[in-house]
Design a protein around this nucleic acid. Sequence first.
RNA 1: GCCGACGUAGCUCAAUCGGCAGAGCAACCGCCUUGUAAGUGGUAGGUUACGGGUUCAAUUCCCGUCGUCGGCUCCA
Length: 604
Amino acid sequence: MPEETQQRYEDSDLYRIRHSAAHVMAQAVLEFYPEAKYTIGPPVENGFYYDFDLPRPLTAEDLEKIEKRMRQIIAGGHVFTKKVVSAEEAHQIFKDQPYKLDLIDGLEKGGFDEYGQPLAEKPEISIYQHDTFTDLCRGPHVENTRKINPSAIKLMSIAGAYWRGDEKNKMLTRLYGTAWKTAQELEEYLAMLEEAKKRDHRKLGKELEIFIYEDEVGPGLPLWLPHGGVMIEELEKLAKEMEEKAGYVRVRTPHLAKEALFLHSGHLPYYAESMYPPMEIEGVKYYVKPMNCPMHHKIFGSKPRSYRELPIRLAEYGTCYRYEKSGELFGLMRVRSMQMNDAHMYCSEDQFEQEFMGVIDLYHKYFELFGIQKFVMRLSLHGKEGLGKKYVDNERLWLKTEAMVRRAMTNGGVPFVEAYDEAAFYGPKIDVQIWSTIGKEFTLATNQVDFAQPGRFGLVFMNKNGVEETPLCIHRAPLSTHERMIGFLLEHYAGNFPVWLSPEHVRVIPITDNQNEYAEGIVRQLREQGIRASADLSAQRMNAKIREAQLMKVPYMLVVGENEANAGTVSLRVRDGSQQNNIPLAEFVVRAKDRIARRAKELF
RNA sequence: GCCGACGUAGCUCAAUCGGCAGAGCAACCGCCUUGUAAGUGGUAGGUUACGGGUUCAAUUCCCGUCGUCGGCUCCA
């Protein structure tokens, strides 16, 4: 990306427009609710928001009223004026605004800006005024309200948000808005949102019969329909091929284990809130596993290990259960039952870099196969304050392993960003960040260093010098979980999967019922060749059958009428709408099998 | 979990002020025998998420529970 040549968002006109629109919105809200307390209102990607502490909840009608009033304020052409003030003056101006006073204290002490973000230096305190509204603000703004295009703004939604983003604090009312330079830009943005909704995996998952949720089963517990089942099989086949080539071995472990195991691993103290509560049998507590690692550690420790057999790579598509808070569930992207593309690699310190980069290499192979281009690799580091709480209390090992990962990534020439205070409790990690079609951020793949658990489990191997040494462990899940991967792929391909991943490869469409028998014969032959095929023998006309197959995004439609039946050929209609008539069936089979076997990007 | 909105047939959606719950598609039974995105007639389909309340009368108003959605927080 040519980031250097791009203007920073903070310096752009749109940023000023949105920031100013947020102030105008706040003015309008305060006019309707003079007793409201206002907090912060920054520009964000595609728009802006403002958080208020309001006497009552807002409704959709309120949004309309506020938006209308905003247009009136804009038309007033009020000038934005900046004034630098002392902390005392600021206290006086905002004496009735407790949240502002809180922010001023942050500015005064230094260390935090007006949005509560950490700052390197103590900033000056400034206010911006326009018309009747005064805000604690460092700007920048447009010169006057007329610079906001009244036909290019729109209030989008009402949401809750905690003060300072902390769930222990009061829940405020957040108003989201969007603002652009022109009405056309606004229209395009809204159209883009509509388009994004069409590829939402929850919608496509239902339409393409991939998965469902059932009230009686439970939230976050998806039921995979036959089409989803096929996709899972294909992903597992892919992973197994790749992992076998890379020297992994497969293991299988149970869904439950005694409390003692998770105490031993250190998960319970850090993770109990995300685990399903224990069940007690014969006086012993059992937990449903939230991850596979403790069991894999037990397998590693099941016999004496020599440096000669390292690295040992234990792989398992293990099903895990995590008690995610109800409001956090989201389609397939955030679930409570998940099957992870999991493996644990045990290696010596001098093998670490090669092993770690071997995983990164695997990522790249998968991303190339799927054509994934928009992602960011994040190196997640520990936070000093969390040592002994969120993180294993051993700063020396944290710094050491973080440096190892940083060096490995740098030596491998893989671009990454660093994220402070986002590590796993047992070590630093590389997460692959992606975005859902409606803009939610997710970790797809993950690759984590574990310097804590092997020691806790007393895992050792005999090194060259005949001395016992503790291995490092790398946790990795390049294909994430079945749930998240399929959710992501649905959106990534908008349901138009490459042939190998398509739940149905071929739909045979007889033109009249005189060709039903011929169609069924074709299906038998295709299945014999490992091609997923079915015939549409319904009483509908050909056009309706084609339409249905198109809507289900079946890559190959084989239309057969009298001519084809007599000649032993098929008329191929590809999902992209192209057509090739009178192909001998054998020829179609050869080409289709080739596309499937190669996991080709092209259809035919 | 928190704030807010929503929940009607398998799916997508109607139902005025509280007054007999409706359509299209799908399903089923026929007719049509069809050449690359919906041929046509009929039949059936509902405890309006669940439980309570107000009322002569509740899809509609009120309370609770469950679930979904938009955010916040948290995460593979």
